[in-house]
Computed example of a mutant assay.
Amino acid sequence: MSRLAHDGVHLIPRPEQTPAALKAALTLVAADRLPEMIDGQTQAMAEAIASGGVQPIRSFVTHWAAVVEIERRPATAQAYHRANYLANHGESVLECREYALIVAELYREAFEAVSR
């Protein structure tokens, strides 16, 4: 059972943690990030081949599952994108740092939700 966002709204159900399912979900909730995902998948595959292990692929899948978790919940996605913008365009270093902490916390919550 997926965890409810603060407002209880989900755009889509939580997808399976496979590259294909995450790509399909990302197409629905944040299609503009597909090129980034595809580049990340290519890099993860190359790292897996070079290292002879699957950890780069596991990390790729978990990261994109967390991204989809954020994007499928409108209230969370809005808070995440606002904080991310302000972390990069704040009026002071302190303000940027405060918003960067919000970004990190929202990502951590999403990561934990998909890592259970």
Rank of each mutant, 00 (worst) to 15 (best):
31 A>T: 08
56 P>Y: 11
55 Q>M: 01
56 P>K: 05
89 H>D: 04
27 T>E: 14
44 A>G: 00
72 R>N: 04
99 Y>M: 10
91 E>T: 02
94 L>F: 14
78 Q>K: 13
79 A>D: 14
30 A>N: 10
65 A>K: 04
102 I>D: 07
59 S>R: 05
94 L>H: 15
92 S>D: 10
85 Y>T: 10
101 L>G: 12
28 L>F: 10
77 A>N: 05
74 P>W: 13
92 S>I: 13
38 I>Y: 15
49 I>M: 04
102 I>S: 09
77 A>F: 06
102 I>F: 07
70 I>S: 03
81 H>D: 15
87 A>C: 09
79 A>E: 11
100 A>I: 04
69 E>D: 09
64 W>M: 08
68 V>G: 00
99 Y>D: 05
70 I>P: 00
57 I>M: 13
57 I>G: 02
39 D>Y: 13
72 R>W: 07
64 W>S: 05
47 E>S: 09
51 S>G: 01
76 T>W: 04
72 R>G: 04
74 P>N: 11
51 S>E: 02
61 V>K: 03
50 A>I: 00
71 E>P: 03
33 R>M: 12
90 G>T: 03
49 I>V: 05
49 I>W: 03
64 W>I: 06
70 I>E: 00
60 F>G: 01
28 L>Q: 15
75 A>T: 14
38 I>R: 11
47 E>A: 15
27 T>N: 10
48 A>M: 01
98 E>A: 14
96 C>V: 03
79 A>K: 13
70 I>Q: 01
39 D>M: 10
98 E>W: 11
98 E>P: 09
95 E>R: 09
79 A>P: 05
31 A>C: 08
33 R>W: 09
31 A>R: 11
69 E>N: 08
39 D>S: 14
69 E>H: 06
89 H>S: 07
86 L>M: 13
98 E>C: 12
99 Y>R: 12
27 T>H: 12
46 A>R: 06
35 P>M: 04
39 D>N: 13
100 A>R: 07
61 V>G: 02
81 H>F: 15
81 H>S: 15
74 P>V: 09
40 G>K: 01
56 P>V: 05
85 Y>I: 07
90 G>L: 05
102 I>L: 14
91 E>C: 04
68 V>A: 00
33 R>P: 00
38 I>F: 15
50 A>Y: 00
37 M>L: 09
46 A>P: 00
30 A>D: 12
43 Q>S: 12
40 G>P: 03
42 T>V: 05
92 S>P: 03
43 Q>V: 06
80 Y>I: 06
30 A>G: 14
38 I>N: 13
52 G>L: 00
27 T>C: 08
63 H>E: 14
74 P>C: 10
83 A>R: 07
100 A>K: 06
64 W>K: 07
39 D>R: 13
62 T>H: 11
74 P>E: 08
60 F>H: 01
88 N>P: 02
33 R>C: 07
78 Q>M: 11
95 E>D: 12
37 M>P: 00
30 A>P: 03
84 N>H: 14
55 Q>P: 01
48 A>N: 00
76 T>L: 11
79 A>G: 10
84 N>A: 13
100 A>T: 07
